[in-house]
Structures are given as C-alpha cells and as structure tokens.
Design a binder for these strands. Sequence first.
DNA 1: AGGAAGATCTACT
DNA 2: GTAGATCTTCCTA
Length: 195
Amino acid sequence: MKKLSKKFFSQDPAKVAKNLLGCILVRKLNKKVISGKIVETEAYYGLKDPASRAYKGKTKVSENMWESAGTILIYMVHNQWLFNIVTGKKGKPQAVLIRAVEPISGIKFMKRKRKIPRLCSGEVKKLASGPGKFTCAFGIIKEKYHGLNITKTKDLLIIPRKENFKIASSKRIGVARDLSQNLRFYIKDNQFVSR
DNA sequence: AGGAAGATCTACT
DNA sequence: GTAGATCTTCCTA
C-alpha cells in the first residue's frame, strides 16, 4: 500500500488540511487493522496564530512543530489527546489537526477503547467524531507516537484516496481567539464530523 | 500555587 | 442548540 509522502506534508497547512480529507488513516497492531476515513481537519499557523501552541515560542509541548514535515505532535487538552501533523518547511511551525474520522475497520476495537458497552448501530458515527474521541478510539497515545514522522512509521500511516465530495469550511471550533479566515475543513454532508 | 488549554459528557431550555 | 462541571498536563508567578 502506498502512503502519503513527505512532499505531501511540505505544503501550506490549509492546503494539506484540505488534501487530507478523504484519505484513509490506518493503524496496525498485532494482527488487527484499525482504519478510518479522515472527514474533518483544521490548519494551524504557528507564529501568527494565537490559537497555536507555537504562538508563544518553543515550549516542551510545541517544540516538535519546528521539526520537518510529517512529524507527529500530540498534546493533551482537557484530558484528551489531540493528534497533529507538522506541515511546511522545517523550522517553520505549522500543523494540521485531525479532528474526526469515519470508522472503516476495527470498530469493535474502537468501541472497547471508547468504553461504550452497548453502542447502537446509529451511534457508530460518534465513535471518532471529535479530536479527542478519534485518538481515543484509535488508541493513540503520546508516549508511542509523539515526535515520530508519519511518513516513516510502519504501524501508523495515511493512504491517499481519490473520491468525489464537496469540501466545506468554517471557523475553527473551541478556539478562543481565531483568525479571520476559515481554517476548519470537512467533507460536506458527512455524518461523522463533530457536532 | 494557580490558571489556561484546539474537549467531552450530560442535562437542560 | 447552549451551558456547566469535569478532567490532566504544562506554563507563569
């Protein structure tokens, strides 16, 4: 299987965020495969962006944003792990946040991770419909992936996929001081985006 | 020591 | 749909 290249991530974060929609995120563990389609993303501009962790300069949390494209940045907010991928050139802090995925395989695993004992069929859409829920469902934790490069990891990868859909955009969610432009992107009319 | 943070769940209007 | 309580790191004083 072909996965996304470093070149893919070396572009403007808003562009990467849009191109990431519809791609398949895969996590392999043991003999199980957990996968889902990316349906919602947000772009973050480091230095000019008050909502970015890099806004106030390098800290222990944000230092990975200065690494090269494809580096995985995970940090915790409100007891949730948020999963970011660094984009652009090395030394220029920018990133894309994965906000929601549509579960494809490993749904049992996700349910167990999310600790939803009796999940009605209609509630699969809530399994990974949010940045914290998605990392939880995929079992992604900071100790394992923080600082790695997603173009190199063998058990975590993103596969490109062509598909026809409309991309919608909006203001980012939960951001105290947002920029004037729309930096949240999602697949229009998809049931698995947050809210 | 105190507070903020890119969120989520639950319970309501 | 909105509102409030709650959670864990790490930054600032």
